[in-house]
């Protein structure tokens, strides 16, 4: 007797469900075994913790908006709309807009963003660009080439990380948290280095600079002088 298409389909669904249950059991067992064999807990970076806090905060506001009764929401929305007229420009527009050569720096209330209005280079990518100096103990851990950016991760014995990125400026824009970082501009040998020094201990600081048609960025728990020293050592 041949099964009808619907019955056949339902039986396949049940069979797939049972097989997949078995797969789930095996996958979780594998993960547990991996946990047990490893035993080392990863210490998440302060940047990670900060970002998760931010995600939570955003979600709290969003979920609140969804739960506010319609009438309350309407009056809040009206008030917000009136205030919004006054503040919309502040929220959506940068406080400061600055262009140095082809580099455009926009300063928003909680972040700075950098973009580049020049041409993309003819050569797609520069290979083998590396900092000539790294603080003691930091070794190159990984290199990942993306479409327009390369990311080099350096790590020391204490699992502390320094990230060096470079890429085609015209195709890359960079945003940096300016709420907990103090921005300083440093001029050296005709180059402008934008340094974002972390205000809280444990947070990472960054330095950004443009050279030719390329953008460079170093992020690590180093002080300003160390960041500039690494930046100046980069062989282009």
């Amino acid at each position: 007797m041949r099964l009808s298409e619907q019955v056949n389909e339902r039986l396949w669904d049940s069979l797939l469900s049972e097989i997949l249950k078995e797969n789930r059991r095996a996958e979780l067992a594998e993960l547990e075994a991996f946990d047990a064999s490893d035993g080392i807990l990863h210490e998440f970076s302060s940047e990670f913790e900060k970002n998760v806090r931010r995600i939570r905060r955003k979600f709290a506001v969003k979920s609140s908006l969804e739960k506010v009764p319609a009438a309350v929401y309407k009056s809040v929305a009206t008030a917000a709309a009136i205030l919004g007229i006054a503040f919309a420009a502040l929220l959506t527009q940068p406080k400061v807009y600055a262009a140095v050569g082809d580099v455009i720096r926009n300063v928003f209330s909680d972040h700075d963003s950098y973009s580049y209005r020049g041409e993309a280079p003819k050569e797609a990518f520069k290979d083998n660009i590396r900092p000539g100096y790294m603080p003691d103990g930091y070794e190159l851990y990984s290199v990942i080439y993306g479409g327009s950016m390369a990311t080099l991760t350096y790590k020391n014995e204490d699992e502390e990380i320094a990230i060096f990125k470079y890429g085609i400026a015209a195709l890359s824009s960079v945003s940096i948290d300016n709420e907990r970082h103090e921005c300083k501009e440093v001029e050296r040998n005709g180059k402008t280095y934008f340094i974002y020094e972390a205000e809280e201990t444990g947070d990472r600081s960054s330095v950004i600079w443009y050279s030719g048609e390329y953008i460079y960025d170093i992020t690590a728990q180093f002080d300003r002088d160390e960041l500039v020293k690494i930046a100046e050592s980069v062989r282009e």
Binding site: L31, F34, D35, D38, H42, F44, S45, E47, F48, N51, V52, I55, Y141, S142, I144, T153, K155, E159, I161, I163
Partner: peptide, 21 residues
């Protein structure tokens, strides 16, 4: 567990943290 699962795929701690986020 999420970090370890991400590491299995990318084997890079900073990328793994991004994935967990």
């Amino acid at each position: 567990m999420m970090f370890r699962a991400a590491m299995k795929n990318v084997n890079n701690p900073s990328l793994a943290e991004e994935i967990v986020q």
